[in-house]
Structures are given as structure tokens and as C-alpha cells.
């Protein structure tokens, strides 16, 4: 697995954990263990996202811009040729 694919796999796993914890925290806002879990994976997600965007291009519109417009340069995630 190349670096780009590996980073995307990490991002997907971390953001899954974060979103899962968020849905739970909506209904259990005082659960400190769930909050710790959220914080842990959200930190890792931020790191991996930063790394990915610096190397391979934006994941959201807020990471686009710079010298070239890279937002539309890669295949879209739903395409067979995207690395998704």
C-alpha cells in the first residue's frame, strides 16, 4: 500500500471513530470516558489530515487554493479510479 492510500485509510478509520463517538456523546454529553475517546482519535485525525493535505491535496474546500486549483485535479471519491 502506497503512502497516499495508507494515509487515507488512517483518516477514514480515525474519522469513523470520531463520528461514532460524536453520535454517542450527543445522547451522553456527561460521559467522560467517551469524551476522552473522542479527543484521542480526533487528535490523530487532525495529524493525519494535515499530513495528507500537505502531500496529496485538499480533502475539503478549505484546504484548496495555493498555486494551482487542486480541488478538481484528482478523481472524485465515487469513481472506480479514485484510490477510495
Amino acid at each position: 500500500m502506497n503512502d497516499k492510500k495508507y494515509l487515507m485509510k488512517q483518516i477514514r478509520a480515525y474519522s469513523f471513530a470520531v463520528y461514532e463517538a460524536a453520535l454517542y456523546l450527543d445522547g451522553h454529553p456527561d460521559d467522560s470516558r467517551a469524551m476522552e475517546y473522542f479527543e484521542k482519535w480526533n487528535g490523530k485525525l487532525a495529524e493525519a489530515t494535515d499530513k495528507y493535505e500537505k502531500r496529496y491535496g485538499p480533502l475539503t474546500i478549505y484546504g484548496a487554493g495555493g498555486r494551482d486549483w487542486r480541488w478538481t485535479a484528482d478523481p472524485w471519491p465515487w469513481e472506480y479510479d479514485s484510490m477510495s
Partner: peptide, 14 residues
């Protein structure tokens, strides 16, 4: 909403 350039779970159908 803003778009995230990834699927929640990968789809790659050969």
C-alpha cells in the same frame, strides 16, 4: 455543510 473528499467506507467494484 461542506464536502469531504472521501467516502465513509471505500467502494471499489472490479
Amino acid at each position: 455543510w461542506i464536502y469531504e473528499r472521501k467516502l465513509q467506507y471505500p467502494v471499489k467494484i472490479k
